[in-house]
Write a protein that binds this DNA or RNA. Structure first.
Lengths: 273, 273
DNA sequence: GAGAAAATGGAATTTATGATCCATTTTATG
DNA sequence: CATAAAATGGATCATAAATTCCATTTTCTC
């Protein structure tokens, strides 16, 4: 039973939440999950708002508060309002804060990468040609099977594409070069190839593209240069320029493009055969 | 007279406050001063509390709100509450819409994802605890070998981590569950485990974490809930809140965090042995 | 599969809070 | 100093929010 002292600090609150959340029925679990993920909202929301967010009735949320040891929502809210430390400043201020941390500290780095990520997302809308994007989506949704290739730096993007395609029931194969097998003959007439490759362009990817091009398989290329080694195969090209931070590029933009492309294909595709 | 449009942003609010405060009688001036000095409290206080703080009657504070152009205290408070929580709920509904009837060109879709990506990067600065990030980086750089695990949705992140670690000469192993082999015995004393897992938490990942926890292997968890199934193993937790819409979640924020973490570890690590 | 216990949804109730109003006080002005 | 206008305090009213209660549904146990 939950008839016990209410947590007196945010730390105690978290512990209580953890302790309690092990054994909770469905609705109360939803409350716990939502509250855990939106602690910051508690101070400024009403029961009704929180309940709606969690997808439960207000009364369920009340019960949840009581299980945590509070007399009700108000008492829980009081805890959060009291320890509400001068409202969060806006994005740029927060960023500045992070950057003020010691040079090279993980927090400062995170700030830099977030910033780089945002910048590269912004430029994405400029570098990607909408017509090409539409063409790419059409081409891929018309394919029997979409073959995805991307190695090295691009491998993570390729795996993510494979994941979304599978979720959206788009027939797709991920080419991994596992064991140096390149499975080029798995690519059949009527299929399409989706290739990700960035500046130290890996040769297995190029080989696969070259082979496919020779057989007139339609190709979509996500790459960083219009005149890269892929250009001569005349693929439908989606350009991404990733903002460097130090030696590291943030793949956030590429990932974003990949997601949009995958969802376009997934929704355009008629119900699976 | 103060019958004018209410400020629509914090910036507009400040300007209005300044403009108005020149010519104000005693009590209203107290209101202005107190409000200016305690803007952060507005979101979480009642009229009565604010009035007491300013040393005036509630009715005086009401009048003050109206002079600023608001219909009353509630409307002013709404401005502060909304700018505090940011625009996340909007995205939820927008993306849900998108999923229900996917109208719109791929380019429009890309626009949506870029927006969502930017917002989720921004919120990353709120959810990740800098102290935990530092601790995670220290813990991983102290390890002999870093073991990376992440399946399903998280697999692409895991592969990216493995890529950067390798580039930075940090000894790391990617656990893929290829062939259902979980290689749990590859994790030795002195190693550390880095686990990525999000809401349909995959059981192989949990198993691996459980096993490692039982052997006192230090664990860093990148996840979406402080009370998720990983919580009971008390890992160093890095929270990323990606609102869940099946395939529509953009992992840009997680990727960004992963990159920052990897680079932190890579630079902290003393020259390779 | 029947019965009991737990959990849940939604309406009804209570409380707290915001907003309004007007008598009283203060300040400005001739 | 008298008068009018403005400002203020505090009580009252209206409303929105928190809380409780109970009928219904679900889940567990024998």
């Amino acid at each position: 039973m939950g008839d016990n002292a209410p947590p007196a600090s945010l730390k105690a609150f978290e512990e209580k939440l953890l302790e309690v959340s092990e054994s909770l029925p469905k609705r109360l679990r939803q409350c716990a999950d939502y509250v855990a993920a939106n602690k910051d909202r508690i101070a400024v929301s009403t029961v009704a708002e929180m309940a709606e967010g969690a997808g439960v009735q207000p009364s369920a949320l009340m019960r949840f508060c009581q299980i945590l040891g509070f007399s009700g929502f108000s008492e829980m809210q009081r805890l959060f309002r009291e320890s509400y430390v001068g409202g969060w400043p806006d994005y740029s201020t927060r960023l500045k804060h992070l950057r003020e941390k010691p040079e090279g500290s993980p927090a400062a780095l995170l700030g830099e990468f977030v910033d780089a990520g945002r910048a590269s997302l912004e430029s994405l809308l400029n570098t990607v040609d909408p017509a090409n994007l539409t063409e790419a989506a059409n081409l891929l949704s018309a394919a029997n099977v979409v073959h995805i290739v991307g190695l090295g730096r691009s491998f993570s993007i390729a795996t993510y594409m494979a994941y979304i395609f599978e979720k959206m029931e788009v027939p797709a194969v991920l080419h991994t070069s596992l064991g140096k097998l390149d499975n080029r003959h798995a690519i059949r007439k009527g299929d399409a190839l989706l290739a990700f490759t960035f500046s130290p362009y890996s040769s297995p990817t190029l080989d696969l593209v070259e082979n496919a091009a020779a057989r007139n398989i339609p190709i979509v290329a996500v790459t960083d240069s219009a005149i890269g080694p892929l250009a001569k195969f005349r693929p439908v090209t989606l350009l991404v320029s990733e903002v460097d931070f130090g030696a590291f590029r943030s793949p956030a933009a590429t990932l974003c493009l990949a997601t949009a492309l995958a969802v376009s294909v997934g929704t355009a595709k008629p119900g699976s055969a």
